[in-house]
């Protein structure tokens, strides 16, 4: 089987191998993350893209081991700088969180604690990880706010989250996440709740800070446009599995998995006029987790699905251009229309 690091040109800072996270209800087990593999290159950005229910957010929470009951990481390895985070004690893990690996979330409106000031919340990171006094922590918080482009930071540190706009709050979240100079930043849909002009500001800020501070980023998003703009590599997820894992330029120029192709085709674009043409759609909808297809998870919606797709789950395999894909079409076992195989 292929290794997730195979496609990287850079050293990996994080490698996730066969990660499995499940949620246990009384009746059944929901395999939210079902054997996920990917690697994050040092100083670069990996995008994880998928629709709701794909398991992308659960994957990101699993990396920091922030999964709460009734969820549980049940298998796999998360290698951060060569060490498996799943082997660490809770106390060791706390030294990683917010210090070596930080995270920002989708909803800047609700992700900050409403009863503490912005300054108190940023300071807390310094006080936990760098063991410095209150005053010094507050001064550094002001510096951080300056770094993320918040005007008059001396006043802003004393404000409460509800006094700031959504864009400003997301800047505060970024300041908080970057306070202790982490090597890896996990951004879970950081701009989904923001307006598009504010999204442009935040994405620009993240790119600029990445160049300045040299951190690696995992960008979780449902927006293929955001992937194209910010990422170097991308993993496409569907129903808890990575179906395609490629360099960003390759994925958009030559998408291989029928799901990726479908996703790109069904996206209406503001820069292309289709005239009266219909959007190409992916038929049906994501099956409910208690009714997981036994073969390829995408088979029930795939226009090319053949017998083998319905029966057996394909592995993530290396394709000719060095990227990785989980699809029978690209294997020797393909038993469907031979035309499909040639055309890809």
């Amino acid at each position: 089987m292929v290794k997730p690091t195979d496609i990287l040109k850079e050293e990996p800072i994080l490698e996730v191998r066969n990660l499995q996270t499940s949620f246990f209800t009384e009746k059944f087990e929901v395999k939210a993350v079902d054997g996920v593999n990917f690697a994050v290159p040092k100083g670069k950005t990996l995008g994880i893209v998928g629709e709701s229910g794909s398991g992308k957010s659960i994957t990101s929470l699993s990396i920091l081991r922030l999964i709460q009951n009734p969820g549980k990481i049940i298998g796999g390895e998360i290698l951060f700088k060569g060490e498996n985070l799943l082997d660490k004690s809770e106390a060791q893990m706390r030294r990683v969180r917010g210090n070596e690996i930080s995270m920002i979330f989708q909803e800047p409106m609700t992700s900050l604690n409403p009863v503490y000031t912005v300054g108190q919340q940023i300071s807390e990171s310094y006080r936990i990880h760098q063991n410095i006094g209150k005053k010094e922590a507050m001064l550094r918080s002001i510096d951080m706010l300056k770094l993320v482009g918040i005007p008059s930071p001396e006043q802003r540190v004393k404000q409460y989250p509800h006094e700031l706009s959504g864009g400003m709050r997301q800047r505060v979240m970024i300041a908080m996440a970057l306070a202790c100079d982490p090597e890896l930043l996990i951004a879970d849909e950081p701009t989904t709740a923001l307006d598009v002009t504010i999204q442009a500001q935040i994405l620009e800020l993240m790119k600029e800070l990445q160049q300045r501070l040299g951190m690696s980023i995992v960008m979780i998003t449902h927006d293929l446009g955001v992937v194209a703009e910010t990422c170097d590599y991308v993993a496409v997820m569907y129903m808890g599995k990575v179906v395609e894992y490629a360099k960003v330029a390759d994925l958009f120029k030559n998408p291989k998995h029928p799901y990726t192709v479908g996703l790109l085709n069904s996206l209406p674009r503001h820069d292309i006029d289709l005239g009266d043409e219909e959007l190409t759609v992916i038929k049906g909808s994501v099956p409910s987790p208690d009714n997981m297809p036994k073969g390829c998870r995408f088979a029930p919606r795939c226009p090319f699905a053949s017998e083998i797709c319905v029966e057996q789950l394909p592995d993530l395999e290396q394709s000719e251009d060095g990227n990785q894909i989980r699809c029978w079409i690209y294997t020797d076992e393909w038993d469907g229309d031979p035309e499909v195989k040639v055309n890809g």
């Binding site: 922030l66 210090n99 609700t110 807390e124 936990i128």
Partner: peptide, 14 residues
């Protein structure tokens, strides 16, 4: 269950 509690945990708070 609020988001800001998750934020605190992600910061490494005990």
């Amino acid at each position: 269950d609020q988001d800001y509690i998750r934020t605190a945990r992600a910061k490494g708070v005990k």
